[in-house]
């Protein structure tokens, strides 16, 4: 029997939900474990196989000096490094602190701030080490995870569409919430992958999968405003689970600075 590829699963600042997606593949888990050697996965196993690893799945963002060092070790021991989820790909909900005074935040939550060691920012993995592939979502979609593992192990690019949620919504034939009910929806600027989940539940998209390719956020925000949505609500909509993703961050800053009326000067992601 040929040597099975060795897979490792790593956690940084996160909720564990994206790595749980692997254990949530109830129908496929035992087959996956036959196809690959799950060498390092502390949430699931006491056996800690040493590197190097063929594929590392990395969940979570970098928020401490220790983790900024640890991710470099993970990169050195991994042939392919895949980031999974909004925390690893954009900084996650905890990146809201990038917009706040961190000392005040620590004092808000902890009685003894001197015990806490943290960076002032929460940043995506690619800000620290080269990343080979990324999987979006808060949380990721387990079918996309299986597709990514399958493709990577077979030496092909995974089929992960980068168009907007808006298109997925049209494909499902869901009546547009913005047009019919004036509900603010980030579907036009959010990366596909969820299958237009929120619109299917009669609520606007709140951007779990982060920005799509070339998101046109300015006119979308202007449209929200024209339907009577206040500026603070629009700002908070962009300041969500991918607040630190560049197009969303910039649009939120536009809102907070009252610069929302400016036309878009650039398209595409930074």
């Amino acid at each position: 029997m040929p040597k099975r590829p060795r897979v490792a699963v790593w956690k940084f600042a996160s909720c564990d939900g994206c790595q749980l997606s692997l254990l949530d593949c109830e129908d496929e888990l035992l087959a996956v474990a036959e196809a690959v050697e799950i060498a390092y996965f502390p949430e699931a196993s006491r056996a800690f196989g040493k590197g190097p690893y063929d594929v590392s799945l990395v969940e979570g963002s970098i928020t401490t000096p220790h983790d900024a060092e640890r991710i470099r070790e993970v990169r050195r021991s991994s042939k392919v490094l895949v980031t999974i989820g909004a925390c690893a790909t954009s900084g996650g909900i905890q990146a809201l602190k990038n917009f706040r005074n961190v000392r005040e935040l620590i004092a808000t939550v902890y009685a003894r701030p001197e015990y806490i060691d943290t960076l002032t920012t929460s940043t995506p993995i690619r800000d620290h080490v080269p990343v080979d592939l990324e999987l979006r979502g808060c949380p990721i979609n387990k079918n996309q995870l299986l597709e990514l593992l399958n493709a990577t192990l077979n030496g092909r690019r995974p089929n992960l569409p980068s168009h907007a949620v808006c298109l997925e919504c049209k494909q499902r034939g869901i009546p547009c919430l913005m047009v019919t009910q004036a509900i603010p929806c980030l579907g036009p600027v959010t990366h596909a992958g969820c299958g237009a989940l929120c619109p299917a539940f009669a609520r606007g998209c709140f951007g779990c999968y982060g920005p799509s390719d070339a998101p046109n956020t300015v006119p979308l925000a202007q449209h929200f405003r024209s339907t009577g949505v206040d500026s603070g609500t629009v700002e908070r909509l962009f300041l969500g689970f991918n607040a630190n993703a560049e197009p969303f961050r910039t649009q939120a800053l536009r809102m907070s600075l009252g610069a929302e009326a400016k036309p878009s000067t650039s398209k595409g992601e930074s």
Partner: peptide
């Protein structure tokens, strides 16, 4: 586990 400051981040949210 790195702190994520949820209680602080919730202030000012809807």
């Amino acid at each position: 586990e790195p702190p994520r400051f949820f209680e602080g981040l919730l202030r000012g949210r809807s």
